[in-house]
């Protein structure tokens, strides 16, 4: 579904990604782990072109997203993203947050979008909050709404950029539960996360990144139980694995 070839990203003089190659297949549940500043989030943001790669290719369903004349907005409708800081639209109620894109992008009628939003709100157990504004929700509730907001467009893939890092510990579970539910329904997902217990349970493939490169990848069993590289061993010992 997605093929990343020889991807480089510089911020000024700082080289953040140094030649990433990665293939993402339909149904993959990929977790990206690694020390802070290693380029995990940048890689994720290069996949939907929120950051423009300096060099290399990102090919999504046969289209090279780095080409100049690609209609990124059309592509992004098929590529959801969930942010660390939730980024719910603070001027809209929960239900309007969810229905804004399908309605304004002309993908659904208002009544169909609302019906669909209510179904999804039920799925995440927040039906009673549909008319609340984001400011009145807890972090975990906000993130669940944010997940549903990207889910309503029925994307081919959802990218999660540290979805639980801004949450109080007791709220992590309610978010990861929703993510597991979506994964079980067959969604292709790429998750940058520091939540190792979740990664172990969830990921069909784990990537370990350090210093702008993918150092090692494999099943969670390979990565956590049988690390090969010194850097991964060091990382795992630091996080107390």
């Amino acid at each position: 579904m997605i093929e990343i070839k020889n991807l480089y990203k510089d911020f000024g003089k700082k080289k953040v990604l140094k030649g990433i190659d990665l293939t993402i297949n339909k149904g993959d549940k990929i977790a990206i782990i690694g020390p802070s500043g290693c380029g995990k989030s940048t890689l994720l943001r290069c996949i939907n072109m929120l950051e423009k790669p300096t060099k290399g290719e990102v090919i999504f369903n046969g289209i090279n997203l780095c080409d100049k004349d690609v209609e990124l907005n059309k592509i992004r409708q098929k590529m959801g993203m969930v942010f660390q800081q939730f980024n719910l639209f603070s001027h809209l109620s929960v239900i309007d947050n969810i229905t804004l894109a399908p309605i304004k992008l002309g993908l659904m009628s208002k009544s169909k979008a609302e019906k669909e939003a209510l179904r999804l709100l039920k799925l995440i157990d927040l039906s009673d909050k549909k008319n609340e504004f984001p400011n009145n929700l807890s972090g975990g509730q906000k993130q669940r709404v944010a997940i549903v907001r990207s889910l309503i467009l029925n994307p081919d893939i959802i990218l999660f950029d540290e979805p639980t890092s801004a949450l109080d510990p007791e709220m992590v579970k309610e978010v990861t539960e929703v993510m597991k539910k979506i994964a079980d329904d067959g969604m292709t997902m790429v998750v940058v996360s520091h939540e190792m217990s979740f990664v172990k349970e969830f990921a069909s493939r784990v990537l370990f990144m350090d210093d702008g490169n993918i150092i090692e990848q494999g099943s969670s069993n390979d990565i956590f139980k049988h690390p090969k590289s010194e850097r991964l061993k060091e990382f795992l010992s630091k996080i107390g694995n």
Binding site: Q77, M81, F89, R149
Partner: peptide, 8 residues
């Protein structure tokens, strides 16, 4: 960014 990521 959230707006962009939804395809706006």
């Amino acid at each position: 960014e959230a707006g962009y990521s939804l395809g706006f």
